[in-house]
Design a protein around this nucleic acid. Sequence first.
DNA 1: GACAAGATACATTCATGGATGTATGTTTGA
DNA 2: TCAAACATACATCCATGAATGTATCTTGTC
Lengths: 208, 208
Amino acid sequence: MPRKTKEETEQTRRRILDVALDVFAETGYTRSSLQDIADRAGFTRGAVYWHFKNKADLFAALGDDIEGESIEAFEDLSRLRNRQDLQRVLCDYLARLETDERFGTFSRVVWYRTEWVEELEPLLRSSRHELRDLVQWMVAALRQLASLGEIDPRRDPQKDGLALYIHFVGIYTIWMTDPTVLSMVDDAPGHLKSFLDGLAPRPLADAD
Amino acid sequence: MPRKTKEETEQTRRRILDVALDVFAETGYTRSSLQDIADRAGFTRGAVYWHFKNKADLFAALGDDIEGESIEAFEDLSRLRNRQDLQRVLCDYLARLETDERFGTFSRVVWYRTEWVEELEPLLRSSRHELRDLVQWMVAALRQLASLGEIDPRRDPQKDGLALYIHFVGIYTIWMTDPTVLSMVDDAPGHLKSFLDGLAPRPLADAD
DNA sequence: GACAAGATACATTCATGGATGTATGTTTGA
DNA sequence: TCAAACATACATCCATGAATGTATCTTGTC
C-alpha cells in the first residue's frame, strides 16, 4: 500500500530506525542484514532503501538521530568554574548512558557490536573518536581549574588528566560490558568526586 | 605439492595462524574471509580447511595458541602476601599486552575487532569473560590483603575492589583503543601503585 | 470541489558477487 | 602403495543494490 501520509511516512522511518538499533545491538552491525531489519519492522527492503541509501547510511542516520548534540557539553571549557562543574559534566554524560536507553544502546553498538573497518571510520569517528580525544580536554580542564585556584598548583595536570581519563574510561567500559557491575547514576559520581576532591589545593584542611 | 614433512606441515599451520591474526586485526573477524587468509599465507582455502574446521575453529585455535596460561596468574589468591604482590600480578598482565605483540593484538581483536554474536560466545568467553570476572577476584584479593594487615581494616573491600577494577579496566581500554596515550610498561605501574599505596593501614607514616 | 497528472512510498523482482563448505583431484613422503 | 597435505572444482546460500512495478496521496487546474 504505497503513498502514505507524511506523518505515516515519518512513522515508518522511525520504526525502521528503532528496529535497526535493536537488531544492531543483538546481531552486531556487520551480521545484521537489511532483510532482517525490514522484516522485523514489518516492511520490505524496498522501504529501507527508500529512506536510506544503504546500511552504512542507516547506521549514520541512527547516530545523528540519537547522539544529537550529546558531546557538545565537552566543548566550551570556559564554563568550568570549579571542580564540581567538571564533575557534573562528566557525570551527566555517564548518567545519560543509563537514563537514555537508546543512547546507551547505541554507544554499546558502536564500541562493542561493530567491528572497526575503514569503511565505517567516518561513522564511528563521531562516537569513538570524541571519547578518545577526551584526554586532551580533561588536561585542559584541569589546567583551567588550576588557574582558578581549584586545584593544587604543584600538581601535574598532564598526569592528573590521564588519571581522570583512566577513571572515566574505566567506569564507561565496565558499564558498557556489564551494566550490572556498577550504576552510572548511583556509583559513578562518588568515584569521580573522591578523585577530584583529591586534587584540591589543601589536602584535607580547607574548612574555609 | 602435497605430502610434506611433519615439520613443514606444522610450519604451514603456524603460518596460517600468524596470517589469520594479522587479517583479523586489520579487517575484523566477520569481514575476514578464509580466502584472503589463505591467499596471504601463500596457500589455498584447502589448506585452511585441512588444518581447521572452519573460521570459528581457526579463531579458537588462535586463542589457544596465544593466550595459553596467561590468565592463570589470577587463579591462586593464596600467593598474595602484600600489596606489591598484587601490583605485580596486575602489572605483569598489562605489561604482557605491550611486550607480547601477539597477545596484545589478539586481545584487541577479541574486544574491538569482533562483533559479539552467539556463535562466538564460547570463544570470546575465555577472553572477555575472564576480564569481566576480575572484579570478584580483586575484591577477594583485597580481603586477603586486609587479613594480612596490608590494608586498612576500616576500608570497604567491596568499594575498593570496584575502584581497583575501574583503574585496571581504564588502563586496559585506553591502551587497547590507542596505545600511544599511555605505556603499559612505563605508566601503568605508577598509577596502580599510587592507588594501592592509598589503601595502606596508616596514611603516610609507616616508616617501620 | 472534482479530477487528472505526477510524484511518493513502498513492494517485488532480478542480477551479481562473495563466502562458505564439501567433494574430489593430485603429488609425494613414509 | 597408502594416505597425508594440500589444490581445485563445484554447489549452495545469502546479502546487496538496482530496476521495475504499483497503488495512493498530493497538487494544480478548471
